[in-house]
Structure formats: structure tokens, C-alpha cells
């Protein structure tokens, strides 16, 4: 089985994201990491291989040369090789990212594309469904458990949904997106990081993937949301109750 894991470079979720004076992202203190949901996808692919299911794991990122370190992290986590779709002029919108990923998928012909349910920077949550549609493959999003059948022809997925959980079966090839509870990614140890240095990382110029339409969605302005007025401390439950009743009038 071949598994493709698209990975995005995003700011560390535990860091602070700020805007600078000109309203752009303040890049000064940002630590860049693999999107947490993509880490979960990588971990799941590695576990499939450990169970004897997955044969080859290919990590793919769309972006600039700055994405190389996160592809190396993916290799250290257990990907066999990595592909960087290099696009100096930015990645466009979710639709162009999906097109570029699909172009690589159409070459590699994986049995499974395992990816994040959302990138925690733009919080779009679109690329999974778009790739599946473009590829004409079934999709199962928000997976908290995945079981690939022994013949490798289908997978049974438990999904986290608004009402609880749902179970689906998809025929492979398919696109599955990960949710938080799927697994806990392992800690990457130094020997694995060293080994990752000699694993193959191919670069493909985005321009060679065929004509890409211009982005049809753009961010024209970013601002900090209005912050809440700071409240006050109450000294006891009784004081809290009277504040809620007499001051805020919410109970």
C-alpha cells in the first residue's frame, strides 16, 4: 500500500500570533512546525506500516523552500520520501493547493491520502474534500479510528461529528482526514532525525504541474479582533450569584 501524507508548515500552535504595524503577520518570533493534524496523519501512516499494512509513505508539501525543514521532520517521523511542490509566488487559495496536490497524487497513484482536517493557521478545512473531489475518490473526514481491511481494498473509519460518532466504510483509494483523537504522535528521537537527512526529498516546480488558475480568494486585510472588556474578581460563590442575577441579569 502506498500512502501520501500532505503536510503544511504552520506557526507553532503554542506560540503567539501577532500582527505588525502594517497589518501583516509578525514573523519575528514564529517557530514553524508541521500542522498538528498532519503530524497525526503521519503517525497513523507509520502505525499502519508497523501493523504491516502501509508499504510506502510519501510526505508532500506545497510551498517555498522554507518547507524543507518540516518535510525533514516528516521523514524523521517515518515517511520514506518527501516531495516539495515549490511555488515561489505563494500557494494561491485552497483550490490551487488541492490542484497541485492532486497533480502529484495522479502521478504517484497512492491507495490512501491521509491528511489533516484543517491547517491551524488559516483554519480553512477545505483541502481534504477538494482533493477527494478532484481525484474522484471517496472521503472520510474527522477520523478518530481507521481500520484498513486485510485485502487492502477498503477502510472503516470512525468519525467525530456534531452529534457524537459515525462509522463509514470507504473503498480505496480514498482520502481520509484526521481528528485529534486518532492517535498521539510519537516523540521524534535524534537517531531518526539523523537518518532523515539521507532520505530522498524531491523538488518539483509548481509550474511544471500544468496550468494553474489564479487564486479566486484572497486575504485583503487582517486585524486583531476586538478584545473583551476585562471583568472583575468576585470573592465568593454568593457574590458571583448576586452579580449574575442583579448586575449581568443572565440568571
Amino acid at each position: 500500500m502506498k500512502v501520501i501524507v500532505p503536510v503544511k508548515r504552520v506557526p507553532d500552535p503554542y506560540g503567539r500570533v501577532r500582527l505588525n504595524a502594517s497589518g501583516a503577520l509578525d514573523l519575528a518570533d514564529i517557530k514553524w512546525v508541521v500542522n498538528p493534524f498532519d503530524e497525526i496523519a503521519l503517525e497513523e501512516a507509520v502505525r499502519m506500516r508497523e501493523r504491516g499494512a502501509a508499504v510506502e509513505i510519501v510526505a508532500v508539501s506545497v510551498g517555498t523552500a522554507e518547507c524543507e525543514p518540516i518535510l525533514r521532520t516528516a521523514l524523521a517521523m517515518g515517511a520514506d520520501r518527501a516531495v516539495l511542490i515549490e511555488s515561489a509566488e505563494g500557494v494561491g487559495d485552497s483550490s490551487t493547493v488541492a490542484r497541485m496536490l492532486h497533480a502529484v497524487i495522479a502521478r504517484e497513484l497512492p491507495d490512501l491520502v491521509l491528511m489533516g482536517k484543517q491547517a491551524i493557521d488559516d483554519d480553512n478545512g477545505q483541502v481534504g474534500g477538494r482533493v477527494a473531489a478532484r481525484w474522484g475518490a471517496p472521503q472520510a473526514t474527522f477520523a478518530s479510528a481507521i481500520e484498513v481491511s486485510t485485502d487492502g481494498k477498503s477502510a472503516t473509519i470512525t468519525r467525530e461529528v456534531d452529534s457524537g460518532r459515525e462509522t463509514l466504510r470507504v473503498t480505496l483509494p480514498a482520502v481520509i482526514t484526521t481528528d485529534l483523537r486518532l492517535n498521539e504522535p510519537r516523540y521524534v528521537a535524534l537517531p531518526a532525525i539523523l537518518r532523515a537527512r539521507s532520505k530522498p526529498l524531491d523538488r518539483i516546480a509548481a509550474a511544471t504541474l500544468g496550468e494553474m488558475p489564479a487564486a479566486r480568494l484572497s486575504v485583503v486585510r487582517m486585524e486583531a479582533p476586538e478584545s473583551r472588556r476585562r471583568g472583575r474578581r468576585v470573592g465568593s460563590v454568593a457574590e458571583l450569584v448576586s452579580a449574575l442575577r442583579d448586575e449581568a441579569k443572565v440568571i
Binding site: 483554519d123 480568494l217 485583503v220 487582517m222
Partner: peptide
């Protein structure tokens, strides 16, 4: 919203 609601974006 983007970046966990730390930023409100205007998109076109």
C-alpha cells in the same frame, strides 16, 4: 477568523 480567532481576516 483565522489563527484560532487571533486574527479577523477580510477576504475577497
Amino acid at each position: 477568523p483565522m489563527y484560532a480567532g487571533n486574527i479577523t481576516a477580510t477576504v475577497e
